[in-house]
Nucleic acid binder design. Structure first.
Lengths: 154, 154
DNA sequence: TAAGCTTGTGGGTAGTTGTGGGTAAAAACC
DNA sequence: GGTTTTTACCCACAACTACCCACAAGCTTA
């Protein structure tokens, strides 16, 4: 059963093969709308993980970047750092995408990988790195949650 | 897989050969629409790098420059410095363009070069220079950077 | 319970990609 | 005008990637 189109939830455990490929959860593939053309855009996440956007979602980011002028040092730096690490990748007949070596290194991936649905994108983690990040999250200022509570109705 | 036409993302490492040629990433070549006629316009970037525009994109810049009044000293200088160093270059059967010696010197290029997709153009860097520029970017006002990131919705 | 489909993983192969270098036409120089 | 230098176009090849087939394990359905 697929929920909303282009929306990803849940966590999955797969293995990275010798050719640097990982499986995309079948449920995520089913959730993709046709106009994504079986293609994702991979890039560095803000934590030690890889972010995977459906093509359509990435195009929105692109069109925002396109508006920024290269005359501004700030804009130039932002476009460079955002565009630089992004790579498109289409999944094969078996539902796998191949990860570029630079991203495998960035996310410190070994054989075991964990994929997490993040609503509008997915994250690929080394399970061990995720545990570390989880532990660090304990130190988050919980009072900041109250600010968030005003924006989001749980 | 090609994303949007005339849109460039990702970073690539190539070498500048003895004849002053560099490879254009295959993905970038595929992204070019036919009306670019395999031609780029190269010019000085605002950092220590070379900017490479698809012909079509450059023509847009030209028409924008045309609108600037020569009565303004600022405008005159800006138009002059933008137009001055621009050179067209068509890529060969193997997908390479040759860089004029003046631009090679300007960007301080040696054998190793790095190409970065900047959405509407690409940048050619000496990897070492890019690291220096990256480090300087630390001085950027981080709150302004965060504001920008919030608008783009990554 | 058996048959059939789906899912995750391994691996072979043909085509693509990046790089070096040769040759002839064109341009620049004296 | 003839010689040298530069540029444009071509071929060659190693490394890599995209695409395909295969199969085992799990789930579904009859």
């Amino acid at each position: 059963m697929t929920l909303t189109k282009n929306t990803f939830i849940g966590e999955y455990f797969y293995s990275l093969d010798a050719k640097g490929r990982i499986n995309i959860p079948a449920k995520f593939r089913q959730a993709l709308s046709k106009d994504n053309k079986n293609t994702f855009v991979l890039t560095r996440g803000m934590d030690s993980c890889i972010w995977i956007y459906p093509l359509k979602q990435w195009k929105e980011i692109e069109s925002n970047l396109r508006k920024l002028s290269s005359l501004s040092n700030l804009h130039r730096t932002f476009v460079r750092n955002t565009a630089r690490y992004a790579t498109p990748s289409t999944y094969d007949k078996q539902g796998r995408i191949s990860l570029p070596p630079s991203l495998i290194e960035y996310a410190k991936l070994n054989k075991d990988v964990q994929i997490i649905g993040m609503i509008n994108k997915m994250e690929v983690w080394n399970p061990k790195q995720l545990i570390i990040t989880d532990n660090e999250a304990i130190n988050i200022d919980t009072s900041a949650y109250d600010d968030l509570a005003e924006k989001i109705t749980l």
